[in-house]
């Protein structure tokens, strides 16, 4: 079985975000990691391969040159092959452009099933994989916590508001991973040393025949007008006194000061 995983490189969640003089996110000194949700997808892909005792796991990422380090991280975990679509200066796209690029790149890859993180921890849009599914014209099941494969079809369990939904689809299909799908393994030292030797295909946007006007900021449907850091939280207020009395005071404050009721 050929398993394709879509992976985004993101900021380490512990990174402190700061803006540079131009109001852009400052990348100096930042650690980049595999988006944690994509990591679940990679892990699930590896487990499928291990269960079947055969298969190939390919990890595809769209991003600047540095995204290669995260693909290598997945290869170190055990994936077989990497594909990097280097946006080479044409960053600043949105979910629409990214999905176009991914879909185009997938033409170069064989797959029976596609896995992805359900969202990236940076933008949190949860759109790219569903858009790709639409562009490829294949079924999608999002936010899954369990995946079972039987010949030609898959049974996926997905989280919904007050329970779970179990969905059966024909393959090929796209599945996006929620926490709980598969706890990612640590890459072993052996895996790390082998990662460099594994195949990595590289494409530029031009290689994929994508017009510069259709990607990056020019092609994006969403324009970022301005970035600002969240305003620091102000210190809270502690209301003292007997419970009944205090509750009364809180209601009063919510009405007069916070003006929320």
């Amino acid at each position: 079985m050929k398993i394709l995983v879509l992976m985004k490189q993101t900021f380490d969640t512990e990174t402190k975000i700061s803006l540079d003089a131009n109001g852009k996110i400052d990348e100096a000194g930042v650690n980049f990691v595999v988006n944690p949700y994509c990591e679940f997808a990679v892990e699930e892909a590896l487990r499928i391969k291990e269960r079947l005792g055969a298969g190939e796991v390919t990890v595809l990422s769209v991003g600047p040159e540095r995204a290669e380090t995260s693909i290598r991280q997945c290869l170190a975990m055990g994936a077989d092959k990497g594909v990097l679509v280097n946006t080479g200066g044409l960053e600043g796209g949105d979910e629409f452009t990214t999905a176009q690029i991914v879909a185009k790149a997938i033409e170069k890859v064989e797959y029976d099933i596609i896995l992805a993180g359900f969202q990236a921890v940076d933008d949190g849009s949860a759109q790219v994989a569903p858009r790709v599914a639409e562009l490829l014209g294949i079924p999608q099941v999002t936010v899954i916590t369990k995946l079972e494969l039987e010949d030609g079809k898959a049974i996926a369990t997905r989280e919904i508001d007050d329970g779970v939904e179990i969905i059966e689809v024909a393959l090929p299909a796209i599945f996006t991973a929620q926490q709980g799908l598969a706890e990612p393994r640590y890459p072993s030292m052996k895996g790390i040393m082998q990662a460099k030797k594994k195949p990595m295909e590289r494409y530029s946007l031009a290689d994929l025949g994508l017009d510069a006007g259709l990607v990056g900021t020019d092609g994006a449907k969403v324009k970022i007008v301005e970035l600002s850091l969240p305003t620091p939280r102000k210190g809270g207020k502690i209301v003292e006194g007997e419970p009944a009395e205090a509750a009364q005071k809180v209601v009063q404050l919510l009405r007069s000061e916070a003006k929320v009721i």
Partner: peptide
């Protein structure tokens, strides 16, 4: 190197986790 960084990260992740 990239491998060195991965070695460090795996070890730190393992120890922390």
């Amino acid at each position: 190197t990239e491998e060195h960084r991965m070695i460090a990260k795996t070890t730190a992740d393992f120890t922390e986790g």
